[in-house]
Design a protein around this nucleic acid. Structure first.
Lengths: 112, 112
DNA sequence: TTTGCATACCTCGTAACTCTATGCATACAT
DNA sequence: ATGTATGCATAGAGTTACGAGGTATGCAAA
C-alpha cells in the first residue's frame, strides 16, 4: 500500500475514468475494481470514496440511481454529459502530469 | 499549470530528489529548478515550499547552513544521511505509484 | 525618484483532501 | 454467536498546498 498522500488529487480522476469505461458502478464495486487493477496496491477506503462520490455528484459530474438487489438498496453512479467531458480532460491532465514528474525525477544536474 | 491537487504528496519527494542530485540548494533555487525542469508546468509557490522545507528539517531529513551572498543571508538546504535514504525510498515509491496509476488509467473493462 | 521587477526569506489562515473510526444493515458460513 | 463479506454513510482528525501578506536588497525604466 502506498503512502496515502500520493492518492490525493488522483482519486476523483480514477473514479471518473472507471465510470467512463464501465458505464455505471456502485461504491463498493469501484473500490474493488481499483484494488484489483492496482494488484492490491491502492486500497480506497470508504471514508475517502463516499465523500469523493458525493462531491462529484454535487459538482454535477455523476448522477445516481438506486436499485434493489437482494433486498438492499444499491446506489449506482454514472457519468453525466459534463462528467464525460471532465473525465477525458482530467485523465489527459493526469497523464501529462505523470510525464512531467518523471521528467523531474529522471533529471541529472546540468553544469551551468 | 496543473490543477493544484495533483502536486499533493509529491512535493516533498521532488524536493528530496533535487537535493540528492544537486547537493545543496536554497529555496528560491529549488522553485526555479522545478519550474525549468517542468517547462513552466509546475510552479511551486513559496507558501508551499517553505513550510515543506521546514517540515523536512523538523523530520531530520534535511539540514541548513546560512551563507552571506550580496549582503543577504541565503539559506542552503542539504540532505542528512536519513534524508538520503528517505529520498531514494520515496522516489522509488513514487515511480511505482505512477506505474500503478497508468495501469488503472489504461485499463479496459473486462467481461466478467 | 519612484515604480516595477527579480531575488530571497518567512508566517498565518483557509480550503481541500484522505484516513481512522464508527454506525447501520443484510447474508452466509463456522 | 461470531466472523467475514457486502454495501451505504458520517464525524473528527490530520496533512498538505495555497493565497495573501510581510520583510528586505538591487537594478532599471519612467
Amino acid at each position: 500500500m502506498y503512502s496515502a498522500e500520493l492518492l490525493k488529487g488522483t482519486l476523483s480522476t480514477i473514479i471518473l475514468k472507471l465510470l467512463a469505461e464501465h458505464g455505471k458502478m456502485y461504491g463498493y464495486e469501484i473500490a474493488q475494481c481499483v484494488r484489483q487493477l492496482s494488484d492490491e496496491r491502492i486500497l480506497i477506503k470508504e471514508g475517502s470514496l463516499y465523500p469523493a462520490l458525493h462531491k462529484l455528484k454535487d459538482d454535477g459530474l455523476v448522477q445516481t440511481e438506486s436499485e434493489m438487489v437482494d433486498n438492499r438498496v444499491r446506489k449506482y453512479y454514472s457519468l453525466t454529459n459534463k462528467g464525460s467531458q471532465t473525465s477525458t480532460e482530467k485523465v489527459q491532465e493526469l497523464f501529462e502530469f505523470i510525464e512531467t514528474i518523471k521528467q523531474i525525477l529522471n533529471s541529472k544536474p546540468s553544469f551551468t
